[in-house]
Computed example of a mutant assay.
Amino acid sequence: MERLAHHARLEWEGSTGVGYRAYSRNHSATAAPASASLQLSADPHFKGDATLLNPEQLIVLAASSCQMLSFLSLAARKHLDVVAYTDDATGYLSEDLRKASIEQITLNPTITVTEGTDEGLVRELVEQGHDECYIANSLNSTITITPTIVFAG
């Protein structure tokens, strides 16, 4: 089987000759065949533009999105009726910036299912989704998931 590849293009222009405090951290990213373009910057702590997404936020978003997609796939295969999913995720940078990393990502999904759904099965599928998530399996960060299950109706 051929390995699945994901390509991305990053573009930046400016001058670092103006020194650390003054060069622009703003850049753009695309990933064909998607037509969307992201405007990015560094975290404001690192002199970036707070109005733009930064790489650390993208890691947290990727972990959250992958968890949701893995969970929904499993739920659909079990014919478990999930009607809404939201997640307020947080990533925590290491305190030692010489060994910079996102040490921990906390996912806090609220999962809405139809009345009569087995809550234990939902929680089991959340864990299985984590085990099957490509992003979670690619990161060194500790990822914790604290789901809230809500019954619609």
Rank of each mutant, 00 (worst) to 15 (best):
T30N: 00
A84D: 15
S138Y: 08
E95N: 13
R21T: 11
R123E: 08
N140L: 08
F71Q: 00
S70D: 12
S141R: 01
S41G: 12
A63Y: 04
S73G: 15
F71V: 03
P109R: 02
Y85E: 04
D96I: 06
V122Q: 05
V18C: 14
N108E: 10
V82D: 04
E2W: 03
S138P: 01
S64W: 04
D49I: 03
S65F: 11
D87I: 05
P109S: 08
S37T: 15
A76E: 15
L58A: 12
Q39F: 11
S73R: 11
P147V: 04
S73N: 13
T90K: 14
K47E: 06
T30D: 01
D81Y: 04
A76I: 00
E95D: 15
T144N: 11
G19N: 07
S138C: 02
Y23D: 07
S141T: 11
I143A: 05
H130L: 01
T106P: 00
E2F: 13
F71N: 02
S94H: 11
L53T: 07
S141C: 10
A100S: 09
L121R: 08
S24H: 06
A36Q: 07
E2K: 14
R25C: 08
E119I: 10
A63N: 11
V126W: 04
D96E: 13
H7C: 02
R123S: 02
N54W: 08
H27P: 05
I59K: 00
E2I: 06
P44Q: 08
Q128H: 07
Q128S: 04
A75R: 06
E115S: 09
Q67T: 10
D131G: 07
I145D: 05
M1R: 07
L61Y: 05
T142D: 09
E115R: 09
Y85F: 15
L52E: 07
E103M: 00
V150S: 04
N26L: 03
N137S: 08
S94C: 10
Y23H: 15
S41D: 12
P109L: 02
Q39L: 12
A89W: 03
A63C: 15
A62L: 10
H79A: 14
H79N: 14
L121Q: 12
P55H: 11
A5I: 14
A32R: 11
D87F: 11
V113I: 09
A31P: 02
A89G: 07
R3P: 12
A62R: 01
L40F: 07
L139N: 02
C133G: 09
R98G: 07
K99C: 06
E95M: 10
T148C: 01
R98I: 01
N108K: 14
T142F: 05
G129H: 01
Q104F: 04
N137V: 06
T90F: 13
G91V: 03
E132T: 05
G153M: 03
T117E: 02
C133T: 08
T30L: 02
D131S: 11
R25L: 01
S35W: 00
G153A: 08
H45L: 13
A34Q: 10
P33R: 05
H27F: 09
A76K: 15
I145L: 00
L72I: 09
E119N: 11
A136C: 05
Q128Y: 00
P55G: 06
I102H: 09
A8E: 02
N54I: 03
D43N: 15
L69V: 13
A42P: 04
L74G: 12
A31Q: 06
F151G: 01
